[in-house]
Structures are given as structure tokens and as C-alpha cells.
Amino acid sequence: MTRVVTLTLNPALDRTVILDVLRPGHVHRARSTRSDAGGKGVNVAACLADWGVPVAAAGLLGQDNAGPFEALLAAKGIADRFVRIPGETRTNLKLVDGTGGDTTDINLPGLAVEAGSLAAVRAMLREAVEPGTLVVLAGSLPGGVAAPIYAEIAAELRPLGARLVLDASGPALAAALAAPAAALPFAVKPNRHELEEWAGRSLPDRADVVAAARGLVARGIPLVVVSLGAEGALFASADGTDLAHPPATRVTSTVGAGDALVAGLVAGLQAGLDRTATARLALAFAAGKLGLAGANLPARDTVLALAAAVRVEPLTASA
């Protein structure tokens, strides 16, 4: 079975606060709170584990508060490949408007990382990879880690047969997309804002997003997925482009929905599904996550029912 490894260089303890209504400048009384071990790669691994995909989670953890991460990995049967470093992993605050479900994120700085710790992570990845391994490079970078790190890791792992799935933003995304063809990721999943930031221009219409995605495919990335929030997600490859429309879903929290979409994308790739079936599964993962707190999926039958309800619209060359 194809192996999956996720990389989270800047994990976080996500403190989620549910409010009746978020009103900037006002005093609020929380409806409820919860704390989850998170970070993009951790969340992806958690959803994959719920789906039954064997997965290892790697990256950097502050040794002073590693307990919640260790408990999550153990509970979900995720192989722990994190390197511990001195200090505490950051805490992020997520304010959820209980009326509309919108989330306001306050992300704190991460740990300062020394070269030796990063070298240990890279060595672990090289040892974990074999031909066909799916490696998810996800999330922001902590202090001391330069923007080209994902491009450098891709250059190291692609010759070993790994397929890289990238979910990043800003300079880290730009550096990875500017890499030579031999070091480009297999799949990339920006949202519209991240794609606009990379392109250096607004992409207000669907046609603009499609053109930008197809440009990345032409650059040499086999699969480009652009998440569009409530509009669904665009899936572009050399043999066509689909717009996947999400099913109607009760929203408990949007926290981690993008990570669940990445997990569904990876699950589809791991199972060898075609682009359309992968799009259905990715949207089903994201929709299923919307009804749950934390990085969790509902029962398998529920996810499959959601996948069947995803409408996939093939787009023409002029779309």
C-alpha cells in the first residue's frame, strides 16, 4: 500500500473559542472552548487516519508541551516521526462566530529552529520515502527556516520516487512553484487568495482562476487544486479541468476544512482514483469536517454519501 507522510514544520495547539456573535471591539462571553493539537500536516494526517490510510506525521515539536500531540497521534494510530526541540509549540487562537460559522484566526509565532533540527527532519524524510510515497508539505514556516525549504525538500525526495503534495502560501509557495521542473510538486492546493498572491494580481472571475491553475499545470505540476470556499474547488490537470460543487452541509466550524480537503485529495491519490473521483472525495472530506469540531471525519458511510452528492462540472477550454 502506498505510504503517506505529512510534514508540519510549524505545528500549533489550536485554541478554539465559540462565540454567539463576533463583534470587533466588544467584550464577549464564550459559548464554549476546546483545544486541539494541530497544524496543517497534523490535521491532514488525522483525517487520513480516520479514513483508514496508514500515515506518518513528521516535523518539529516543542518538547515542553508535546503531550497533546503525542496523545492525538497515539489515539489515531498515526506514526510519530516528529523531532523534538527545546521550548513550547505555539498556540493559535480561533474565534468562531456561532451565528455564521466564520472563523477569525490569530496565529502566534512559532519556535525558532536551528539548522541541526531541520537537518534531522530532512534526514528522517529521506529514510521514510520509497517509490510512490505521498509526502504532504503543509503549512507556514517557523522562525529560522527560509522560504525555499519546501522546494529544497522536493528536490531531495523526488529522485527517491516521492510524490509531493504542497499546501503552502506566500514566499514558501512562490519558491516551490519557481523550482526547476525536476523539483516541482506533484500536486498543489492553494486557495483563491493564495493563488492571487502568487500570481501578483486579482482573480475575480472563475475564468481568471481557471487560467492561473492551467498555467501551473502547463508549468509542469500534474494536479492543481484551488479551494474556493463555499463555491467548492477547482481541479485542473493536463487532460481537463473540473469544478466540484460541495453538497449542502450543516456547518459547526470551518476550522480545518481546507486541511480535510487536502486529506481527501491525498486519499484519492493514494487509492489511484481519477481526477473526478478524487474531487468528489476531497469535497466530501471537507464537507464532513464542517459538521465536526477538531480534525475528525464522520463515519465512512457518511463521507461516501457526501461524495455521491458532490456535483462535478467539467469545464471547457474557454471556461
Rank of each mutant, 00 (worst) to 15 (best):
R15W: 15
A119Q: 15
L265A: 05
A74P: 06
V17H: 12
R84W: 09
V53N: 09
H26D: 13
A183I: 10
V226W: 03
S169E: 14
A307H: 00
L166A: 14
P247H: 11
E156K: 05
G232P: 01
A257W: 00
D259K: 00
L261T: 08
L306W: 00
A248P: 08
P204Y: 07
A233E: 05
G229D: 03
R311N: 02
G272C: 06
A45E: 10
L283I: 01
L306M: 07
P86W: 07
R219H: 12
L164S: 06
L141D: 02
L7M: 06
V165Y: 04
V55S: 12
I149R: 00
L265I: 04
T252F: 03
K189L: 04
R122C: 11
G77W: 06
G39L: 09
K76G: 07
I85H: 01
A293T: 08
I18G: 00
L95H: 00
A79V: 14
H26P: 01
T133K: 05
R31F: 04
D239K: 02
H28N: 10
A319S: 14
A307V: 04
V5Y: 08
P24E: 11
A179P: 13
S237C: 15
L297K: 05
A199K: 03
V21Q: 15
V136F: 03
A178Y: 02
T316I: 00
R192M: 05
A138I: 08
G256P: 06
T254P: 06
A263Q: 03
A299Q: 15
K189W: 02
V209G: 08
L243I: 12
A218S: 13
A181I: 15
A115T: 15
A233K: 03
S318Q: 13
V55F: 13
L269E: 12
L290Q: 10
C47E: 09
C47H: 15
R214S: 07
L73P: 05
L297M: 05
A282M: 09
G77P: 07
A120V: 01
L157Y: 08
G38M: 09
S35Q: 12
A174I: 00
A238C: 11
L72K: 13
G59S: 08
G59M: 09
P109C: 01
Q270I: 00
D242V: 14
A295G: 03
L315C: 10
L160P: 07
G258R: 10
P142H: 01
G229K: 03
L315W: 07
D20V: 05
T16N: 10
A178H: 11
G256R: 06
A207K: 09
D259I: 04
P11Y: 03
L234F: 08
L108T: 15
